[in-house]
Write a protein that binds this DNA or RNA. Structure first.
Length: 433
RNA sequence: GCGCCGGUCGUAUAGCGGCUAUUACAGGAGACUGUAAAUCUCCCACCCUAUGGGUAUCGUUGGUUCGAGUCCAACCCGGCGCA
């Protein structure tokens, strides 16, 4: 069984395209902004609110759900989507990002995007900080994690990650990879890439094996059903799952291209990946070139997901360079922390200028928050530390980014991508200082 | 009127003779990109030629001391009790 992805229209002269991706739990119109729900919940939003904000698909996290409540528990509750009452498509990240965030980046203030203000981190040669405290340590064939919840040790291999993801039961799952820090030197990036490639093959192997078993179990379920028709078995977590391989390689052109070739070419028993993730922690200026290098090589007929990326300017960049899926924590994290997206840039709703501002966050925004509440009220909720603050702010931010990608998609269908890009980015002020 | 207790940043506090007056909240601003995040950082007496420098300040005024928010006295204000 292969993942059904159809291209509807291409962006002339660029790598961009508009398409449709079919999963067992519904269709994803691409390009699409995937909403992050790490622990099987989009923080502060219930599924009705996620849907009303326009989100099509939710991405949860393998490592976090493995630790709590445990993948077996999720399976027992009917799988990720059933458990969290999200009826649409779901995805799970493999835990590869935690190799970075709990490893090399642990307690260092380094994150997914390396800002140009801290060039001190871009030292030419990798300093030896293997003694630095970290919760993830890379071993020969997997990663040793120290649980941030109770200090227990867990060794995650590619096979283990895939097994967990099959128990979680998301429609689209990811190969176990190592997200590297942009501060690593070429030697380390090369070693890490070899590791990620070896892990990709092993992930694929395990996935193919488990998918094969699943078909058998579906047949047997079917047989049972004919015998005892009054109690149909739950087949939810037995729906087909599709595996995306992840391209890494840091900022190095040769490594990125090598990775794109390897990941798109690797096969186990004649079967390769159903789609691709593009991973890594970037310096902002490296991102567009890296995406372009990779997407020029990846097969056109399979979907591509730019992992963890999310600012408006990044979405335009990604889409015109052939990205179909984005996911990012920004709308919900910024929302909870009082920052709201507007067409002219981000605002801090707690700032004194909004305290008595009875306008909506944005006049022409169709989200639930903007249709019903004022800036002053939301500012008040944040100042009062009320729970509804994060909810209303997240609803707006999710709507803003999801809708932005939908608008970009429509602009491609209408042959107006360049105009729309120019119009939007002309008004939108990214933060500069 | 007498007695007791107390007056430290907007508020609440720490401080018990030793040099930079603590902490929290409130207030002001910022950060956040496959979520260890409803989190974190900075500012919050005044002045300046502002990655630094200067001057203040613990109700008021005196006093003791090398040195006082801290000890003493008087006064002012508040609370409680007794008349």
């Amino acid at each position: 069984m292969s993942l059904n992805y159809k291209i509807q229209k291409k962006l002339i002269g660029k790598l961009g395209r508009v398409g449709i991706l079919e999963t067992a739990h519904g269709v994803i119109e691409t390009p699409a902004f995937v909403i992050v729900g790490t622990k099987a919940t989009v923080k502060s939003l219930n599924p009705e609110q996620i849907k009303e904000a326009g989100a099509q698909v939710v991405l949860a996290n393998t490592y976090h759900l493995y630790l709590q409540p445990g993948d077996e528990a999720v399976k027992k509750m009917g799988g990720l989507g059933k458990m969290m009452n999200w009826k649409g498509p779901t995805m799970t990240d493999s835990g590869g990002f935690q190799v970075f965030s709990l490893g090399a980046a642990y307690k260092k203030g380094i994150s997914k995007i390396l800002h140009p203000v801290d060039p001190s981190l871009m030292i030419p040669e990798r300093f030896d900080d293997s003694d630095a405290p970290r919760l993830a340590k890379i071993g020969q064939d997997g990663v040793s994690f120290t649980s941030h919840l109770d200090g227990s040790i867990h060794y995650i291999t590619p096979e283990k990650s895939i097994q967990i993801q099959h128990n979680l039961g998301a429609d689209i799952i990811f190969a176990f990879d190592e997200c590297t820090s942009p501060t690593e030197d070429l030697k380390y990036q090369t070693e890490a890439l070899d590791r990620t490639h070896a892990w990709a093959r092993r992930s694929l192997e395990e996935h193919n094996k488990l998918e094969g078993q699943k078909k058998h179990s579906q047949v047997s379920l079917h047989l049972t059903r004919t015998n005892r028709s009054e109690n149909p078995p739950k087949v939810f977590s037995d729906s087909p799952q599709f595996l995306f391989g992840i391209v890494q390689g840091g900022r190095e052109e040769s490594l990125r291209k090598k990775s794109a070739k390897f990941i798109s070419g690797v096969e186990v028993d004649g079967k390769g990946f159903d789609g691709f993730g593009i991973g890594g922690s970037f310096a902002k200026e490296d991102m567009s070139t890296a995406v372009k290098w990779v997407n020029e090589i990846l097969p056109e007929d399979k979907p591509r997901h730019l992992l963890g990326i999310g600012e408006p300017e990044d979405l335009f960049m990604g889409i015109e360079n052939g990205v179909d899926l984005f996911d990012c924590v920004l709308p919900t994290r910024l929302g909870r922390n009082g920052t709201l997206y507007t067409k002219t840039g981000k605002i801090h709703i707690e700032n004194v200028e909004f305290r008595l501002d009875t306008n909506p966050v944005e006049f022409d925004c169709q989200c639930y928050t903007c249709k019903n509440y004022s800036r002053a009220y939301i500012s008040h909720l944040f100042r009062g530390k009320e729970m509804l603050a994060g909810t209303l702010a997240s609803i707006h931010n999710v709507y803003f980014l999801v809708n932005l990608v939908k608008q970009i998609r429509q602009s491609i269908l209408d042959d107006k991508f360049e105009e729309y890009k120019k119009e939007f980015l002309g008004k939108y002020k990214t933060y500069e200082k």
